[in-house]
Computed example of a mutant assay.
Amino acid sequence: MTSALKKLTCSKKRLVPFMVAPKGQNLDYLVQLAKEWKLKTVIDSKHPLSKAEDAWAKITDGHATGKIIVES
């Protein structure tokens, strides 16, 4: 699956899919990872609210390699 994700994102970064169902046990696991600094969110880019259209274009083009943040 990871090789398929690399092809979709055109990235050489190591991608590890992580799916969580909203169960207490899973959320506890995420909290523990965060406390141990083992959970990392990849941020692709940040955009001011006035440039939200540019952020949306990047999302829909499929060229993002992480989360896109729109700040007010």
Rank of each mutant, 00 (worst) to 15 (best):
A21D: 01
I69F: 10
S45R: 13
K38I: 09
E53N: 15
G66P: 02
S72M: 13
V20Y: 03
W56G: 00
S11Y: 02
S3R: 06
I59W: 05
I68M: 05
S45A: 15
V20C: 07
L39W: 08
A64M: 06
K12C: 12
T9V: 10
I43N: 07
G24Q: 02
L27S: 02
K6I: 03
L33E: 03
K51M: 05
V31P: 00
S45K: 10
L49A: 13
A52M: 08
F18T: 00
K58W: 05
T9G: 06
L8W: 00
P22M: 06
V70S: 05
A34F: 07
V31W: 11
D44T: 08
V70C: 06
W56N: 04
W56Q: 12
G24M: 08
T2V: 13
P22E: 02
A21I: 01
H47W: 13
K6R: 14
M19Y: 11
A52I: 11
M19D: 04
S3M: 10
W37D: 14
V20I: 07
H47V: 11
G66R: 01
L49E: 05
K58E: 13
C10A: 11
W37H: 13
S11D: 10
A57W: 08
I59N: 00
W37P: 00
S50Y: 08
A21M: 02
W56S: 01
K23R: 14
L15M: 05
S72R: 09
W37R: 14
S3Y: 09
T9N: 08
P48H: 02
L5Y: 03
L15W: 01
R14A: 12
T60Q: 13
L33V: 02
K46Y: 12
G62C: 06
G66V: 05
K46T: 15
K6S: 13
H63N: 15
A64D: 09
D61F: 00
I69G: 05
L15V: 04
P48C: 07
W56L: 15
G66N: 03
W37K: 12
E36M: 10
K51C: 10
A52C: 09
Q25C: 06
L30V: 03
D44L: 07
Q25D: 11
K7C: 08
T60E: 11
M1L: 10
L27H: 04
D28R: 12
A55C: 06
T60P: 01
L30F: 01
H63L: 14
L27E: 04
K67S: 06
T2K: 12
K6F: 05
A21R: 02
Q32S: 08
K7P: 01
V70G: 05
P17G: 01
V31Q: 03
A64R: 01
F18E: 01
G24E: 08
V42I: 15
S50P: 02
E36F: 09
T60D: 04
L33R: 00
D61A: 14
Y29T: 09
I68W: 04
N26I: 09
A52N: 03
V42N: 07
E53Y: 13
Q32E: 13
L33Q: 03
M19G: 03
K13F: 08
I68Y: 11
E36Q: 15
D61C: 12
W37F: 14
E36D: 13
L8F: 02
L30W: 00
T2M: 12
W37I: 13
P17E: 06
T41V: 14
N26F: 14
K23L: 11
G62M: 00
V70P: 06
S50K: 15
L27V: 14
